[in-house]
Design a protein around this nucleic acid. Sequence first.
RNA 1: GCGCCAGUAGCUCAACUGGAUAGAGCAACGGCCUUCUAAGCCGUAGGUUAGAGGUUCGAGUCCUCUCUGGCGUACCA
Length: 542
Amino acid sequence: MKSYLVNLFDEAKNKLEYLKEANINFSVPNDTTHGDYATNLAMTLTKVLKRNPREIAQEIIDNLNADPKVIEKIEIAGPGFLNFKFNSEYVTSIISEIKEKGDLFGKSDKYSGKKALVEFVSANPTGPLTVGHGRNAVVGDTLANMLEWIGYDVDREYYFNNAGRQMRVLGDSVKQRYLELLGEKIDFPEDYYQGEYIKDIAQKLIDESGDSLKEEDAEGRFKDIAESEIFADIKNTLAQINIVFDNFYNERDLYDDGKIDWVVNSLKEKDLIYEKDDATWFRLSALGQDQDKVIIKSTGEPTYRLPDIAYHTTKFERGYDMIVDLFGSDHNATYPDVMAGFKALGYDEEKVKVVIHQFVTIMEKGEVVKMSTRKANFITLDELVEEVGADVVRYFFNMRSVSSHLNFDIDLAKKHSEENPVFYLQYAHARISSILKMTQEQDLNACYDNLKLLSSDEEQALIKKLYEFSRSVLYSAENFEIHKIANYLEELAAQFHKFYTHCRIIGSEKELAEARIALCVAVKTVVKNGLAILGVSAPDKM
RNA sequence: GCGCCAGUAGCUCAACUGGAUAGAGCAACGGCCUUCUAAGCCGUAGGUUAGAGGUUCGAGUCCUCUCUGGCGUACCA
């Protein structure tokens, strides 16, 4: 419908000179009595033309060559809106289109041929994923899905660091627990990893190797085994919520292949590096920032900035057209440094899209739960999935704008999980599946020849909702606003439930019944496709 | 102090990117199944969009200031 309007106005540009310069927007009015689409065009032209908006509106109408079979009427309303009411028979044509495209309906080839990298989760292997990581994981995977739907060839990447202080502490934490389980008296430091999972790993070592590891270096065997165990656990958790990475990028590779040295030398050549207090500093003040920052500590170890800059240069060199970095708001001060780094090295920062999601606040028994991996008072993603299920977890994180803080009330999620809106969507899908099965038994099948019979308010409203899907996917993907898909699906499901309450199938005239079945098939397809983007299952039974 | 994000119904959140009477779910109350899924539908009630200015035909949306909350502001990541 919208593209018809766009073409209509393109034609009119030949007659009305001022339309060529105008920015023409169409929107769906909240109030259905205002028609199917509306434009504020005449109002925006008031200033340019210095004329009455309603007068301009009339002139535009006089110059639109609309086919009455497509557009039933055009009205001027309020201060100067142009309202378009489409012919109901024309509106139904989308049902056939959805039938033809099936699982592909809603996809776009706008960005086909382009490669995108989405980096997310990227938690170091020091412990199980928490609920906080869960938001990052789900949002990242859904973003990747959406980019695929608009044509991108997407790689999902997990960046990690298995060296440095954190990992040394991890290795020694396991070793201490190992010795403790063997009966030795130990003094477990407060700043070591306190979680039960450390003891589990130690126990596993005893089961496999007895006490033969007593003399092993904490940074050797203990660290390695801890890393591999924890990574296996992380991958398992991710798999449970349908997330599979294409690539795990180890920070160490950046040292092994000389990337780190190359970055240091290149920055040095540009006089962006200097030594002070035994440390190496990055001259960010020369790049428009307030102060310089350390990139190599006096101990000789780099800060996160250096490897992160090096890592990003590999992203460019691997040929991605768009590079998406997703992280929590606790990192919001770090990316400008990294950005400045690769920009100084001559890479195009426009390709990098930084998406920051706000924190998840965990509420339990009416209180905010403060969490830290180190202190082990966190709630793991695993536990959450076990409690409420993968679909609820995915939907919960997908239904909110990334820039909003998210309150996750554990008790509510556990107790009232059946009241979660995800069930509302899944129910719509299951309901249609059931209807189709039942009607088939009555020898009624979808028929696309008499769609014009779908003329009631409920039917027309539902069909028009179907038009918004493709646009919603495109908008969500281009703007990284994942929650729009969930919002759209809720509206679609509501419209469907409304339709179904008013419009019976069995008992209606055969032509009408079969047209309604065709509509049900179309709705089912769109709900299923939408849930697929969100990574939520579309059950046939509930 | 400074930077980023937010503040909309009792609670959790929407609002088509500046449009027409600000909408859903939960919670409350009242209706609707002898036939296709009632995990549903319909109705009632609930609002000075944190506050004050400004921009314009028009502001929840943009600008300025104030207040409140979250996250940062490291030789942690």
